[in-house]
């Protein structure tokens, strides 16, 4: 129970299962989001070594084979060692996605319930988490359209959608949504849609500190409530505690 499904294949299996057997899927989903975060490392050591070194070349070289080759050399491997990554540049994109998803729980923390003051509403937390995840794309934002193009390649679409669903689950989970009911599908789907639309918008945003992206995100979140996906789950995105959630983020060095 403690560990999450380690491979994307099994996760995909779970997603597939959701379409036909909602009840079983819901059970799985909740196990899958165990409270104990003792998960196996998401990448093998050699893969990690090459990929983490490669990521630092993305700002200059993009999500390309060149970045991978340079990363392999930095990590002490050979050019040819990039063959360890069967999906090539998609593995590089995927590494960024997975690492940034897993980093969310550390970059964003909310005052614990029972602590002094009221905790933020789920809606405000969703907003803060989504924004924090978007901001994690900042160092590579000028390369992000490349990444989107790679994710859109037919053979990588299933894995990319799977990762997007996992991000949505993670955000709902970290926001403290524990409800187990049929609204789970719409919640996941709506947040996935909101997130991807905003992510694309952000690649063209030239405003200072991405304020336009933030506005765009708020508009999409409002839409989501109107359309009904989040109805019942959240009543709004910014309440009086919303500011405190943001302040927490700012204090933690997240530039929002």
């Amino acid at each position: 129970m403690a560990s999450r499904a380690p491979t994307s294949v099994s996760v995909l299996g779970i997603l597939r299962a959701t379409s036909c057997r909602p009840a079983a899927a819901l059970k799985l989903q909740r196990f899958y989001h165990s409270y104990e975060y003792t998960q196996p490392p998401p990448f093998q050591p050699a893969e990690s070594a090459i990929l983490s070194a490669s990521i630092s070349h993305v700002p200059s070289y993009g999500f390309t084979l060149n970045a991978l080759t340079l990363g392999a050399c930095d990590a002490g491997y050979l050019d040819v060692s990039t063959n360890l990554l069967p999906r090539g540049v998609f593995d590089l994109v995927n590494y960024h996605l997975v690492m940034q998803r897993l980093a969310l729980k550390d970059t964003v923390q909310f005052p614990t319930e029972g602590g002094q003051g009221r905790s933020s509403s789920i809606g405000a937390k969703i907003r803060a988490l989504t924004l924090a995840r978007l901001h994690a794309n900042r160092p590579v934002i000028h390369r992000w359209q490349e990444a989107l193009a790679i994710m859109a390649q037919p053979s990588y679409v299933p894995a990319s959608l799977d990762e997007l669903a996992q991000l949505a689950d993670e955000i709902w989970f970290l926001a403290g949504d524990k409800s187990v009911d049929s609204s789970w599908y719409t919640k996941r789907a709506s947040l996935s849609a909101v997130y991807s639309a905003t992510e694309v918008f952000m690649t063209q945003d030239t405003s200072k500190d991405f304020v336009e992206t933030e506005k765009f995100l708020d508009a999409r979140l409002e839409d989501a409530i109107k359309v009904g996906g989040f109805l019942g789950a959240v009543s709004g995105w910014v309440d009086y505690t919303g500011h405190s959630a943001l302040n927490v983020l700012r204090n933690k060095g997240v530039r929002i």
């Binding site: 070289y61 060149n66 080759t69 050399c73 930095d74 050019d79 063959n83």
Partner: peptide, 13 residues
């Protein structure tokens, strides 16, 4: 093609 043999002098570290 997948093995991508050769070292590109332009991108070699």
């Amino acid at each position: 093609r997948n093995l991508n043999p050769g070292r590109n002098p332009l991108t070699a570290p």
